[in-house]
């Protein structure tokens, strides 16, 4: 019984950690740079499909199935998602702030269509199965298998976390924050906001692609249904709850929100009669939407959010200098 519980705990944590990776990617885009991405699901999906196509065994009725090692699949996922982000960013970042949001929304719709309709590439509505799972040789022992997967993702997260913390402190990260806080001042110092924003958007997209690949290989099966707009909402809720601008907050928010989501979903399926479950699930989503708005209204910097350096400065200044 306890072993089952541990195995379930490891499974749950692994899923939460894949969301944490997406959240870290979003944090680079939103938290560090202030770029609003409404198409997270698309970038995650592109990563997942890229890795699946690269690593699955050959399939007669579908392009791809190159049977490459998983690591190459993950790398490819990051590269392709990063390239897509670069393209979208290059097109819209120089325009008004909301155009990027609208364009990423369009990307989400279009990627969803491509997943459904480009059957020879994506397998259509049925998706792609038989995606090789890391530590497949351990699959006979459920506990060991979940723990190994969980450990692998923890390593990935730790690596990303250290890397991103380093990036945030590096000159590049400082420029990003400077641009986010005061674009004109940064420009006056000779930094080109567009270029730095584009780099950050690409990096964030690549991390989301990696997360998609990790998730796909953990579940072993992907279909267009996994990448509905609700995924984008969940990740946003995670980052806002955890606190944008803070990598630890991003990870904590992912685990917390995913935990709440999984718990309420379990409660819905346990206590609500089957005929009302669709309605209960809808209420669950209403709660996320309202929660997101409340968080923005009441505690915009989230649980562990970064205090804006300018605001910190303002608070330490004498009263007369505040205005």
């Amino acid at each position: 019984m306890t072993l089952d519980l541990v195995a379930y705990g490891a499974f749950f944590l692994t899923m939460a950690l894949t969301y944490a990776i997406i959240c870290l990617g979003l944090n680079v885009q939103w938290g560090m740079t202030g770029l609003f991405n409404v198409g997270i699901a698309a970038f995650v999906a592109v990563g997942a499909y890229t890795s699946a196509i690269l690593t699955t065994p050959e399939t007669p009725d579908r392009f791809g199935g190159f049977d490459l090692p998983i690591a190459i699949g993950w790398l490819g996922a990051a590269v392709v998602s990063g390239a897509l982000s670069w393209g979208v960013g290059a097109l819209t970042i120089r325009l008004r702030a909301d155009y990027l949001a609208i364009a990423t929304f369009g990307v989400a719709v279009t990627v969803q269509l491509c997943m459904l309709n480009l059957q020879p590439l994506t397998g259509g509505a049925f998706g792609i199965g038989f995606i090789p799972r890391p530590f497949a040789q351990l699959q006979a022992d459920a506990l060991l298998f979940s723990l190994a997967n969980c450990g692998l993702l923890m390593l990935v997260i730790a690596g990303l976390y250290l890397g991103l913390q380093h990036v945030a402190k590096s000159p590049w990260g400082r420029v990003l924050r400077a641009i986010r806080e005061d674009e004109t001042a940064a420009q006056a110092l000779g930094k080109r906001p567009i270029r730095f924003r584009l780099q950050a958007f690409t990096l964030g997209g690549a991390i989301m692609g990696l997360a998609g690949a990790a998730q796909a290989h953990f579940i072993g099966f992907i279909a267009p249904d996994n990448y509905m707009p609700i995924l984008t909402f969940q990740v946003w809720a995670m980052l806002i709850v955890g606190g944008s601008g803070n990598n630890r907050g991003a990870i904590a928010g992912a685990i917390l929100v995913w935990g709440l989501w999984a718990l309420t979903a379990a409660a819905v399926s346990a206590f609500v009669p089957p005929e009302d479950q669709a309605q209960a699930a809808a209420l669950q989503i209403v709660a996320i939407g309202v929660g997101l708005c409340l968080m923005l209204l009441l505690r915009p910097r989230g649980l562990f959010g970064e205090v804006s350096p300018l605001a910190r400065l303002r608070n330490t200044l004498p009263l007369s200098a505040k205005e």
Partner: peptide, 8 residues
């Protein structure tokens, strides 16, 4: 916020 409102 409009995004959250649309979801709700």
């Amino acid at each position: 916020a409009s995004f959250g409102a649309s979801l709700a």
